[in-house]
Every structure is written in structure tokens, then in C-alpha cells.
Design a protein around this nucleic acid. Structure first.
Lengths: 192, 192
DNA sequence: GTCATATTGTTCCATATCGAACCTTTTTTG
DNA sequence: CAAAAAAGGTTCGATATGGAACAATATGAC
């Protein structure tokens, strides 16, 4: 298969590890992480999974501690803030969370007064969800953290490189998005 | 903050949605997904999270169905296959899975005969884990799927673009990797 | 050498999670 | 219009998960 490795980058890792005695264990740990990232037949996947991990774990950990909200609960808030009112099932489809999990999240957010549900025209099944001021306040407080970590991650890239990365990722995402739409979004979990 | 959006890409999405009656709901769903991806202050994060989702869900779903192995269990096999023998705690540190979860995974894999544990020199606490032929066979059968989906994801890019994307992601990953190493890997879950 | 500390891995338990069955409302079909 | 099918949400229950306390071993301090 193709090689997506970038061998010339690797010295940058090694030169970060001085030869102290107490570095032995650290080096051995790094050996595994490094191998997963660079000596991996699926290096592209390994990289975005690594980034997702290093991004999501600290941020959602902070959200949990600061607001006592689970990841799903915050995702609902975030999506409503970014993309205006939606129904629960629309959020479920879009995020691929199971709808019962989402149902619990929505009910908790309603109970906490962070979101508001209003009738969806004549349809008495679905309710249209939107943020209350309290929910918006949480988003407003959290956003800088999310932006900050993203900025930190992108720090090693200059502006041109960022634009390039953004464009390349966009191409990949759009392609998957279209592929998914053309075969029915309901089958997301079965894509194969 | 900086804008990582790529407005000129968006028509590619819209032109995929014909104006049929039954497309109304689909369009509304797409509206949310699209907004999350393109009208999101953290567009970079949204993109790699989207890719991770679209990559991991189907593959680990298949692994579960085909081998009856959980994600963590398969991760152990995958890591041992890619990076040679390691101890459980090394895998735990590197993957950021809690060590008790990993302990369970390791024990199940031992019981299934997919991995092998041997004494770690004089240290009677840790055991060095390696794949048995049966474990290796699972890796060998699974790898083409993982490679295949990665290849599919990268299909819209030409060779130069792939190299470029790989290099840019590598820069970001290496930078985070170094930042993590310099502040102690044990604090991974607290990175903030 | 001996005691305090750290490390590895396991067990316990409260909670989170998700599939499946379910209820209600809406839409479609004949 | 009645019956069937579909869609939005909720409830239930079996399982997974991860934090905290634990036992066993190893390392370090003195």
C-alpha cells in the first residue's frame, strides 16, 4: 500500500528525549506511541485519531468538571449554538449518537433549563430545541477553550499551511459526506 | 479567530441534493451536519472528529461482528501487531484507556488465546504481551479493511495532495506529541 | 537492611451506555 | 376513511465503563 509516513519528521521526536536515566521508561512508552503513529499501515487514520483523542479528552473532561455536563449533553448545546434550532432526532442522525442516549441528554438539559423545547407546528411528536440564555452562556464560556486548544494544535503551522490543511481535509470530508448522503444517512452505522 | 472554512468547497455539497419532495428531510439533516463542519468556530476539530467517526464506527462495528472483540481488545491486538511486544501498562499509557479496562481486555484476549504473556525478566508485576498466531491471524484478516477504508477516504486526493496532507498532519501530531512528553505522559488525561 | 514510596495489575461498584421493545402521533396506502 | 407503515421519543434491561480502593511487587531513602 501507499506510504503516508514522513520519515524526515521523526528526528524531531527523538531529539526531544535526552539520555537521562529516568528517561528510559519514557522512551519505551514513546516507542509504542511513535510506532502507532509512524510505523502504521493506516497512518492517516492513526493521526486523526490521535488528534481527536488529544482534543476531545481534555476538553470534555473540563466540560464535565466545570459544568457537570456529559459529552453528549454538551454536544447538543454546541450544535444548537452553532446551527440554530433543531429537533432531537435531527441531532441524533447528524451526530450518530443513538436516539435514546440523546433523549436522556435532552431531558436533562431541559430539566437544567439550558435548552428550551417548543411545539413543531402541528406535529406533536417532535419538539424544536433551542438554547436558553443559560445554555448560551455555557457555550459562550466554553467556546474560547475549544478554540484555544485548536489554535494550540495548529500553532506549528504557518498561515499557508493551515489553509492547505483545511482545504485538504475539506476535500476528504466533502467526499465522505456526499458518499454517505447518496446511500442514505440512516445507514451510517452500517457503512462498510 | 482565524477562519479555516473553505467556502468554495460548499457548492459541491449542495449540488448533490436534487430538489425532490422526499429530499426535504434529507436537506434539513444535512443542514446540521453541514453547519457543524463549515460554520463552526472550531472547523479543524470538527473535521478530524468527523473523519474519526466515519472511520471508527464502521470498522469497529465490523470487528465486533466478525471477531466478537471490543474496540479495546482489538486495539491491543493491533498495537502488538504493529509495534512488537509491550506490557499492558505501556499500552494503557499510550492509548489513554484506563488501565482496569485494559486489564479486562488483556485477560479476555489471554483466555481466547489471541495473545501470549511471558515474564518480564525479574519483574514479577508486569508481563510482556505478544500476539499468538491466532491473534496475528485476526490482525491479518482485519488489516485490509482498515487500509481499504483509509484508501477510500483518501480517494479524492491525488498523490501530491496525500503527501501534503500527511506531512501537515504529521507536523501537528509531532508538535502535540512533544508537548505531551515534555509535561509528563501520565498527565495525559489532564492536559488542559 | 528496613521502611516509605511507586508501579503493575486486579477487583469492586456506581454509573453510563446502547439495543430492543414500546407508546404516541403522523403519513401513506388501498 | 380505515388499516398499515413510518417517525419521534421514551422506557427497560443487560452489558460496558471507569474511578477508587486494593494486593503484590519493585524501587528508593537513609
Amino acid at each position: 500500500m501507499e506510504q503516508y509516513d514522513v520519515p524526515e519528521m521523526r528526528p524531531q521526536i527523538e531529539d526531544a528525549a535526552p539520555a537521562g536515566e529516568e528517561m528510559l521508561d519514557r522512551r519505551r512508552l514513546d516507542a509504542l506511541t511513535e510506532a502507532r503513529l509512524w510505523r502504521n499501515p493506516c497512518g492517516f487514520a492513526a493521526r486523526f485519531n490521535y488528534l481527536a483523542l488529544r482534543y476531545n479528552v481534555p476538553l470534555y473532561g473540563w466540560v464535565k468538571e466545570r459544568f457537570d455536563l456529559s459529552r453528549i449533553e454538551f454536544v447538543v448545546i454546541y450544535n444548537l449554538a452553532v446551527a440554530g434550532p433543531f429537533t432531537a432526532s435531527e441531532i441524533a442522525s447528524s451526530t450518530a449518537f443513538p436516539k435514546n442516549t440523546l433523549s436522556r441528554a435532552v431531558n436533562r438539559l431541559l430539566k437544567l433549563g439550558l435548552i428550551h423545547a417548543e411545539a413543531n407546528g402541528g406535529d406533536r411528536r417532535a419538539k424544536i430545541l433551542s438554547l436558553t440564555p443559560a445554555g448560551r452562556a455555557i457555550y459562550d464560556e466554553a467556546l474560547p477553550r475549544f478554540e484555544g486548544l485548536e489554535k494550540e494544535m495548529l500553532a506549528p503551522l504557518n498561515l499557508v499551511e493551515r489553509e492547505m490543511l483545511s482545504m485538504l481535509l475539506a476535500k476528504v470530508v466533502v467526499s465522505m459526506f456526499k458518499a454517505d448522503a447518496s446511500e442514505g444517512a440512516a445507514d451510517l452505522a452500517e457503512v462498510d
